[in-house]
Write a protein that binds this DNA or RNA. Structure first.
Length: 795
RNA sequence: GCUGGAGUGGUGGAAUGGUAUACACGUGCGACUCAAAAUCGCAUGCCGCAAGGCUUGAGGGUUCAAGUCCCUCCUCCAGCACCA
């Protein structure tokens, strides 16, 4: 029977000791032998669910392993505590968001400690702390002074559920809000924006330098959506010039009409030249009524209206071509106008067919039109015969166009009409001109004299405190900005603050940044690919350009963990009622068991796992057997078991380094199975415990101390495999005859082909397969395989 | 449609081109027990009494040897999509 252990008592005891002795703090070290391992800071929702365990307890294995390997590892934890849920919960409970958040943070800190993680609590921070958001605000003012932040106008995404504007990245593909699920409306209103588009090229190009999974890099490239092409000017019959963007300037000779987006400014501007203004205007109105989804539905039939009375001159052919407005051309992309080449673009082709417009092929192809591949030019005057590539530059040069890139990425809109966020540190003078709040007045505190209830109007507009503060400092007639910042701003730089979290004169000292940053390893969820990860890369680059950051990329290596799904295989959510709180398992089976079980599910990087508790007993049994073994240690052990121990060490180390904790755990199990049978000395057992310590920190610490060790096992060194034990004298290799596996032979490791064949001939099991055959070929791969090819001898 | 990734037992999953199904769960049988739980032992891909044969989404190919490499498909997941 296995020795049961009281996991609750053991875990509580060691958690308290670790906190008292502060063994996981990193202090103020400056060292080369250091590493920064980051996990995404959580929102303090009030209860720890299984997803938090997966996010924090499993990377903890890696952190403890590196620390035991002698590396000083920063593994900080903090709280991303601004945002809508606090507001909503606070409204529901009639508490202030601040009180609700503060309560949750202290409660959650306790819960996080109950996981037994090796967090560097001396480096924590919290986005709602004025000492933190003072710097968020200061960076914003620096961005404003340097024209990275600006007050923009335009169409924004309005979420009716959240009662606020949200950024493009926060709208899902189906046009709903990533947070509330409501259908997003388009509204025209002034907005605080950050010029992330100015960084589009660097955000794409610098991906090359990062050790990130390819799919994340690719998703970011697609999100930024760089198209290489050219802008070409067409002259309208009104005398106005209009620029179009095209990725295929080589097809300019095939441009048989022009299309403007309905919202193109030139449409209204040319009103007096348009003979069918009523019809044109009616179309613009219908498009305006359509919601985004309708307009972007590419399966519907194309619509549009010809602008009567205006033509455009094709600069290549010098022919006058008609001009249309149509909603398949988007106002916000490129120049909001296109040259239509129906022969070589499917959308233009469909439109041309519907409106009976000429289709002129200019790229040779044997396929039916429209063809969109490159080729040799025809019907293109002096450019006939050139390849598409050659023609691109030649034609652009000839018509005075400009080679340029266009991006799908839009600037980041960061103003929110909500209460619980960082106040945008801007004040307006009596003429309405915005001014940044000077540094000496930061933090620009969030006033507490308003009802946070969202109404669509920014709640801060009702604050007398904020109004009076503004007038007291800046003078009568000055008014405060009343919007708060998107919470993704807070998380765009938290990893920088961790390293210098008590600095009250700088956001993070450059020397300290140079010591710790960039983050060596960043564990997080896939949902952040085109939000947080993109925003914080941009933020870092903007700071770098201003000399405030030591590096231009924040995270060297990224690991996207999978998701723990509900038992029904769906994403856990309160509304589906499939959320697993691991409290029960932690109470009855212990934190070590829960942690190891999660690590055992499968490789950390990659797939999603439906949470199924049925297997957790296996881990608990394993830990009980490890504990039980401490009372049955042997005086001596076989060489074989020593060899197995060292093999296990080697296997566990490589598995941890590739984040395959599941196979590391299976190696522990295999070894334990053998050790129980064969007997293990105390010396080897202590090595085994150290090897297991990152996986089961409480239990190993307890046994370690019971066996008389004084210092924490987590400050001991991680075992290293000794080469002399890694190789056995003999090796079992398999034997194939004519491609079929027929048996095995045991050989000395350094055996050659001749010895292998001799062994095969001697084996009764094997020789029958080739005894009466002619052996035509033998392949011998040392330590692997003997492969024999025969042909039938004539009888 | 484009891009990235994945398809292996009843389940989670394992396998530098070299013994496919490790490890664990589950299941079955047995031991212990008045009994049950717990624990321990054995078995457990499929067909077959056996000998043997078959098996990594489907079909081809390369190779002495393919889950792994190549080609053609199918299915699922994720991102992008009237982006010129």
């Amino acid at each position: 029977m296995h020795k049961k252990f009281d996991s609750t008592a053991i875990e509580k005891k060691w958690q308290t000791k670790w906190q008292e002795s502060k063994i996981y703090n990193v202090g103020e070290v400056i060292t080369n032998n250091r590493e920064y391992v980051l996990v995404e800071w959580p929102y303090p929702s009030g209860n720890l669910h299984i997803g938090h365990w997966y996010a924090f307890a499993v990377p903890d294995i890696y952190v403890r392993y590196r620390r035991m390997s002698g590396v000083t590892v920063l593994y900080p934890m903090g709280f991303d505590a601004f945002g809508l849920p606090a507001e909503n919960a606070a409204i529901k409970r009639s508490l202030s968001p601040k009180n609700w958040t503060d309560q949750n943070i202290s409660y959650m800190r306790e819960q996080l400690n109950s996981m037994g993680n090796a967090f560097s609590w001396d480096k924590t921070c919290n986005s709602t702390d004025p000492e933190y958001y003072k710097w968020t605000q200061w960076m914003f003012t620096e961005f404003f002074r340097n024209n990275i932040a600006y007050r923009g106008k335009g169409v924004v995404n309005w979420c009716p559920g959240c009662n606020t504007v949200i950024a493009n990245e926060q709208v899902l593909t189906d046009g709903t809000c990533e947070r509330s699920g409501d259908l997003i409306e388009k509204r025209e209103m002034p907005q605080w924006m950050l010029r992330i588009t100015q960084y589009a090229d660097r955000l794409i190009d610098d991906l090359e330098t990062l050790d990130w999974p390819e799919h994340i890099k690719e998703a970011q490239r697609q999100w930024i959506g760089r198209s290489r092409g050219a802008e070409i000017d067409f002259t309208l019959s009104t005398g106005e010039k209009i620029a179009v963007f095209t990725t295929r300037p080589d097809t300019l000779f095939g441009a048989t009409y022009l299309v403007l987006a309905p919202e193109h400014p030139l449409v209204v501007k040319s009103k007096n030249h348009i003979n069918n203004w009523a019809e044109v205007n009616a179309y613009v109105e219908t498009v305006r009524q359509k919601d985004e989804q309708e307009r972007l539905d590419n399966t519907k039939e194309k619509t549009g209206v010809k602008i009567a009375g205006i033509t455009a001159l094709n600069p290549a052919t010098n022919e006058n071509i008609p001009v249309f407005i149509a909603d398949y051309v988007l106002g916000a992309y490129g120049t909001g106008a296109i040259m239509a080449v129906p022969a070589h673009d499917e959308r233009d082709y469909a439109f041309a067919k519907k409106f009976s417009l000429p289709v002129k092929a200019v790229v040779a192809s044997s396929e039916a039109l429209p063809t969109t591949t490159a080729g040799h030019l025809i019907n293109s005057g002096e450019f006939d015969g050139l390849t598409s590539d050659e023609a691109k530059t030649a034609i652009v040069a000839k018509v005075g166009g400009r080679l340029c890139n266009t991006y799908r990425l839009r600037d980041w809109s960061i103003g929110r009409q909500r209460y619980w966020g960082v106040p945008i540190p801007i004040v307006y003078d009596s003429t309405g001109k915005p001014h940044p709040v000077p540094k000496e007045h930061l933090p620009w505190l969030l006033p507490e004299d308003v009802d946070p209830k969202p109404t669509g109007e920014a709640p801060l507009a009702k604050s007398t405190v904020l109004k009076e503060r503004t007038e007291a400092i800046f003078g009568a007639g000055w008014t405060p900005e009343v919007e708060t910042m998107d919470t993704f701003v807070d998380s765009s730089w938290y990893f920088m603050r961790y390293v210098d979290n008590r600095n009250d004169t700088e956001l993070a000292n450059l020397e300290i940044q140079k010591n710790w940053l960039p983050v060596d390893l960043y564990f997080g969820g896939a949902e952040h690919t085109t939000m947080h990860l993109l925003y914080s890369r941009f933020w870092q680059k903007a700071l770098f350009d201003l000399g405030l950051a030591a590096h231009s990329e924040p995270y060297k290596k990224r690991i996207n963990r999978g998701l723990i799904l509900g038992p029904d295989g769906n994403k856990m959510s309160k509304s589906k009622g499939n959320v697993i709180d691991p409290d029960e398992q932690v109470r009855t089976l212990g934190a070590d068991t829960v942690k190891m079980y999660l690590a055992f599910l499968g490789p950390y990087e990659g797939s999603n796992y439906p949470f199924d508790l049925s297997g957790i007993a296996g881990i608990r049994r394993f830990l009980e057997r490890v504990y039980g073994l401490s009372e049955h240690l042997a005086e001596t052990e076989t060489e074989e078991i020593t060899r197995q121990l060292h093999k296990t060490i080697a296997k566990v180390r490589t598995d941890i380094e590739s984040f395959k904790f599941n196979t590391a755990i299976s190696a522990f199990m295999i070894f334990l199975n053998q050790a129980e049978k064969a007997g293990l000395t105390k010396e080897s057992y202590l090595i085994f415990l150290r090897l297991l310590a990152p996986f089961a920190p409480h239990l190993t610490e307890e046994i370690w101390s019971q066996l008389g060790e004084v210092d924490s096992i987590h400050q001991a060194t991680y075992p290293q495999a000794k080469a002399q034990w890694l190789e056995a004298d003999t090796v079992v290799i398999s034997v194939q005859v004519n491609g079929k596996l027929r048996g095995t032979i045991t050989l000395p490791v350094q055996a050659k082909e001749a010895e292998a064949m001799a062994a095969a001939r001697q084996s009764a099991d094997l020789q029958k397969y080739f005894a009466n055959q002619e052996i035509t070929k033998v392949i011998f791969v040392p330590k692997k395989i003997l492969s024999i090819i025969t042909t039938q001898l004539p009888i």
